[in-house]
Design a protein around this nucleic acid. Structure first.
Lengths: 225, 225
DNA sequence: TAGTGTGAAGCCATTCACAGCG
DNA sequence: CGCTGTGAATGGCTTCACACTA
């Protein structure tokens, strides 16, 4: 198995897992690559490739055992012990993110919310008392936090990132519309909403059919391929 | 020039534009590919390629004219007339998005906010009166909206997307953790925060140096391969 | 001489296509 | 038969390398 899976694969595994949990809950025992593919919006070949990465074998007659596939993905994706994160920037977006991740990423525990504005300090953001940025480093170090979420304005982002990295964070989810360079052992995921919306707006204006396999009839029956 | 630029290019252009605006404001007149590259976190070769897409020429002695480069990017990225968007799902994330886009994407105007919860209807979300989802279609059609933003729960997303598409939206920014299939002339950008955070968490746990140009310090000789 | 412009090469990720098997 | 497993082919994006120019 790869030391670390490519990030595209990780993204798809998250999708598969969601579907598999649902199927498993529904009592489905086996699933074919093409069913899973359809449900996740990828190709069947892609699913088979990804399954190969998991070093798992399916059965030509029945497909893949849902439970087994699910447990392999969980083994890869879920941390052995709960992973901790801090969030910097308790503005509107920041506090929405706190509640979002609290609700939807139970495996990742937010252990600190920080902001520089005196007006925010000590306010309670969805159960977390907001602290001054100066305390970020201490908390990260003491609690061995390895994920940081940045939702501060662009001007402040580089400084916040530097603090996080210096304190030992290894992964950063950055919502600020700037890039900063980081040591090679730190992973930064850009979640730049400005880029996202501009891209959508651009594509919407240039809407030409760029789908090779056009065929509307999603509703029609078999996937004849 | 391409009919429609690849989305990776679009993302970088947004980054260049931000930097160029700043440089232009600072009175800088020319910029070299490697300066811009460094500031945007890409390679110089990449910048030159992208500039080539814009069919623009630089000057080996001085670099690129900031103003010219900026205006070409703006010409491509900015819509001729203000583009309209609707947002479905006025929860915490949704309302944070409304204020975020109001503030940071002045070229895109949100003309409607929708939700299905009776408790939300008629409430005012950052200046927008929240309306029932049943009115989405009418508004989209009447105002010729071509961008939709989805921040409803996963279960409701497919239905909302279908309404938007049926009413004529050509680009969707989807924050719900599901995929839906769409006609080939509709562009969907997944902004799945669950995937983003899981990916960061995974990478943080597997933090190995994956930077090729790490260089000096330790190791022996040149990068032999 | 340092930087641009660009064909060619390299690198991935995805898809194809087909052997093998229940 | 239809589906899995997988080498080979494809295609797109990025980087290299070098002729060219101010």
């Amino acid at each position: 198995m790869h030391t670390t899976l490519p990030d595209r694969v990780i993204a798809r595994l998250v999708g598969y897992r969601r579907l598999l949990e649902q199927l498993h809950g529904d009592g489905v025992v086996y699933v074919f690559s093409h069913s899973l593919a359809q449900l996740c919006g990828v190709t069947a070949a892609q699913v088979r490739r990804d399954v190969m990465e998991l070093a798992m074998l399916g059965n030509p007659a029945k497909g893949y055992r849902v439970e087994e596939l699910l447990s392999r993905i969980v083994a890869i994706m879920d941390p052995p012990h709960a992973q901790k994160a801090v969030l910097a920037g308790a503005g509107r977006l920041g506090s929405a993110l706190v509640s979002y991740f609290n609700e939807w990423s139970p495996k990742l525990k937010i252990v600190g919310v920080f902001d520089s504005a005196p007006s925010k300090i000590q306010s309670v953001v969805h159960g977390h008392t907001c602290r001054p940025l100066s305390e970020l480093s201490r908390i990260v170090r003491r609690q061995k936090v390895d994920v940081g979420i940045i939702s501060v304005p662009a001007e402040a982002a580089a400084d916040v990132a530097a603090r996080m990295i210096e304190a030992g964070v290894k992964g950063i989810l950055n919502f600020a519309p700037v890039k900063f360079d980081v040591p090679g052992d730190v992973y930064v995921e850009q979640a730049d909403l400005t880029v996202a919306i501009e891209r959508v707006a651009y594509m919407a204006r240039h809407c030409v059919d760029r789908d090779p396999r056009n065929a509307e009839g999603a509703a029609s029956g078999a996937v004849s391929e």
